[in-house]
Design a protein around this nucleic acid. Sequence first.
RNA 1: GGCCCCUUGGUCAAGCGGUUAAGACAUCGCCCUUUCACGGCGGAGACAUGGGUUCGAUUCCCGUAGGGGUCACCA
Length: 553
Amino acid sequence: MNYQDLADLIFPDAKPIQYYEEKYPERNLPEGAIVTRYAPSPTGRMHIGGLYQALIAIAVSKKTNGVFFLRIEDTDQKREVENGITEIVSSLQEFGMGPDEGQISETEEIGNYGPYKQSVRKDIYQAYAKYLIEQGKAYPCFCSPEELEEMRQKQEAAKIRPGYYGVWAKYRNLSVEDAIQKIKNGEQYIIRFRSPGNEERKIKHKDIIKGNVDFPENDQDIVIIKADGLPTYHFAHAVDDHLMRTTHVIRGDEWLSSVPLHLQLFQEMGFKTPKYAHISPIMKNDNGNKRKLSKRKDPEASVCYYSEEGIPPEAVKEYLLNIANSTFENWRRANPDKEIDEFDFQLNKMSVSGALFDMVKLLDVSKIVISRYSAEEIYEKSFAWAQKYDPELCEMLKDKEYALKVFGIERGNAKPRKDIAKFRDVKENIIYLYDDKYFAQTHTYEYDKIQDKEEIKKILQMYLEKYFHETDDKQTWFENIKNLAEELGYAKDVKAYKQEPEKWPGHVGDISTVLRVALTARRNTPDMYEIMQIFGKERIEKRFQKAIEVLEK
RNA sequence: GGCCCCUUGGUCAAGCGGUUAAGACAUCGCCCUUUCACGGCGGAGACAUGGGUUCGAUUCCCGUAGGGGUCACCA
């Protein structure tokens, strides 16, 4: 009896690997095209780190006219979660990051290199496992989990390197006959890789991001097929990325130390090795300690946080790209209107260590992104956000014509306002411009310099009677406020006042402040002329009246 | 603990043997301005540490400290 008999006994129905090799031929792509992927496990809400990885993968594949595909790594049924794939697919979609090929819903996929869901590729993995067994490069192991655990404890107690290797690899040298006998006896087993490695030897590896790294060779006989017949990550990675013709494996750097194993697997199976790029995780400062952004502890770790807050997807992408390649920022400044895809992303320029997540910076990016929107765009996006997350704002925005006027204040010009960082800010930002909300609230009118009740009343009344005309242009409008100031004995010109402040009780700015506060109950607002234009005389009058009522209380 | 990786201002980061050590965010001041925002100008603020190598180290080598990753029939 020989390896072939053993292989046939274990996987009687597996196809020869030639079948798959032919079914999934080399891709016909231009020179230098990068084929890469995002390969998450459907285990819950999508993590920002995953989005980051996918974004980078897309950037490099787009740049080289390559392929970006989505593969679902669901070989661990225990950790799987309902609608896990939908979560991934819809998150990517929301960010405009749909794959060129791969899984596109729980059950559907596109592309010729599928299936793209590992759980339905069982036959393929088994064919390759069989191939390995035939050559004596893999073998059945009959250790129970308890036995393995016991072994590990022994190793730890003896302070030697834990694992299934060398003399500890109990079934590595079991004869084919004995193995066959055990299997026929119905003993449980899994399939292990017979590692040709030697821990004493070093391998050199060049990672695109991390640079040169030296590791000891792998000598662990790792499990390749689990008791449930599904492959482990390592084996699936080798088989899939070979068959899907991946040229660049872009993944989190928690995999870096598995590289010796992966390289060995590729070599032993006769596969061409892909290039690796290991991305540092996005970190968070936790009481002086750096740690990975955690979905449990940090809301901002979940991709859904951004849509809930109303931070535009493109802002998140720009921020992430910024962490990835700091030259992005300069490029963006120079090319404000270009698509992100046009940025020449450099994998090898990525930081070797993990960046701390900076919400303040993200919000700054977001402010810039939102400031570039037209009134129409910010209306549409705010409305869409409000429909999901804020019924009150949604109600306010139903009057589109009015909302467009509101959003149009100081927008669409060369120096647009940058006062909205996320759609959640919108309501607070505009609510005082809505009469029903405004009059329903009780306000404290915090006037600044001019506090005298009678003086304030006089200013408001006189302004409406003599100095406000709906048809005035901005210059005339402000000239009128100056005239009002003068009539009341205030300085018309702020500079003149500042030079000789003792000559006047105040200046035109103080008058403006009274008008502004009485009009909006706020000291800080965007351009008051535009606000008054939107309101018209009648509404201004109503608001002044309310201000006066409050004064008289 | 073994193995591997990392360490430039508060944060993200250029630089890769000779630089007044870029830039962005944040911060502070001034200017612009009827307020705020925007914008403009300016300030403060960094090469973890100790040894080498070198005419010269932030840049190269070694050690130390600190941080991160990894050691599953999880990915």
